[in-house]
Structure formats: C-alpha cells, structure tokens
Amino acid sequence: MRERKLRDIESGEYKKAIKKLGEAVMDDPALLERLDATPSKSDFIDLYCNLAKERDLSFSKSDLLIAVQEQKQGKDGIIPTIVLRMIADRF
C-alpha cells in the first residue's frame, strides 16, 4: 500500500510538470512554432523535455509518453489539445 501511495505522489508530480509546460507553451507562440517544426517523434520528445528542463520542470521521456497514452484514452487532459495533435502527427 505504501508503494502505491509513493507511486501516486510521483505520478502527480510529473503530471503537474507536464501541465505547467503545456501552459507555458500555449502562452508563447514561438514555442508552439518550434515544436511544430520538429520533423520526428524523437525530435519532438527531446525538445519538449528540454523545454521543461529550461523551466526547472521535471519529467522523463517515459512520463511524457505515458501522459500521451493516457490522454489518448480519455484520461487526464494535461497536455494542450494543439500539442497533443502535434504529437499525434509524429507518432
């Protein structure tokens, strides 16, 4: 039970970070353009994670992929729709 609680807390933290980055991206058209210009899935993921690090936000590539899959299944809408569309175009 204790393991599950820790996992839930950690999960909540990375989701908060992903959501904060999504809000920052939506507030900055230049960042949206940079993301949209990425040619591949790996470039997109690398850039998204680097943008997070630049803002002292912490989540892994795996965390981002989990969030994408969950959102595709209708759970936790933490990634802005426009960003999710960009991701879907590359996956």
Score class of each variant (00 low, 15 high):
P80L: 12
D76I: 14
A37Y: 00
E70H: 02
L51M: 10
T81S: 09
P39E: 13
G12C: 11
T81G: 04
S42G: 03
I45E: 04
I45L: 12
I78K: 01
K19H: 05
I78M: 03
V68I: 15
D56I: 09
E3M: 12
K72W: 04
F59E: 10
T81L: 06
K61W: 01
S42T: 15
M26F: 01
A88I: 15
L21A: 04
D27S: 11
Q71H: 05
I18M: 07
A52V: 11
L64W: 01
R4L: 11
K5I: 15
L65V: 11
E13Q: 15
R2K: 10
C49R: 09
I9F: 01
A30I: 14
V68K: 03
D46H: 05
Q73L: 13
K19Y: 02
D89P: 03
K75G: 06
G74V: 13
S11T: 15
C49L: 05
D56W: 02
F91E: 07
K5P: 06
V68A: 04
S40Y: 03
L84Y: 00
Q69I: 13
G22I: 08
A37P: 00
E13M: 15
L47I: 06
I66N: 02
P29Q: 12
K15H: 06
D89N: 11
V68W: 02
I9V: 10
P80K: 12
C49P: 03
T38D: 02
L47M: 07
V83K: 04
Y48T: 07
A88W: 00
I82R: 04
L21G: 02
S60I: 14
L47V: 08
E70K: 10
S62G: 08
E33H: 06
D56G: 06
M86A: 07
A24P: 00
K15M: 13
S40D: 07
S58V: 15
K20R: 11
K61D: 09
E70G: 06
L64E: 03
E13V: 15
E3Q: 11
R4K: 09
Y48W: 03
A17D: 13
A88V: 15
D36N: 13
S58R: 13
G77W: 01
M86S: 03
Y14W: 08
K75V: 14
A24K: 14
I66V: 13
N50L: 08
Y48Q: 06
E3V: 13
E3N: 10
I18Q: 05
M86N: 05
F44T: 09
F59I: 14
D89I: 14
I87A: 05
S11E: 15
M86P: 01
D46Q: 09
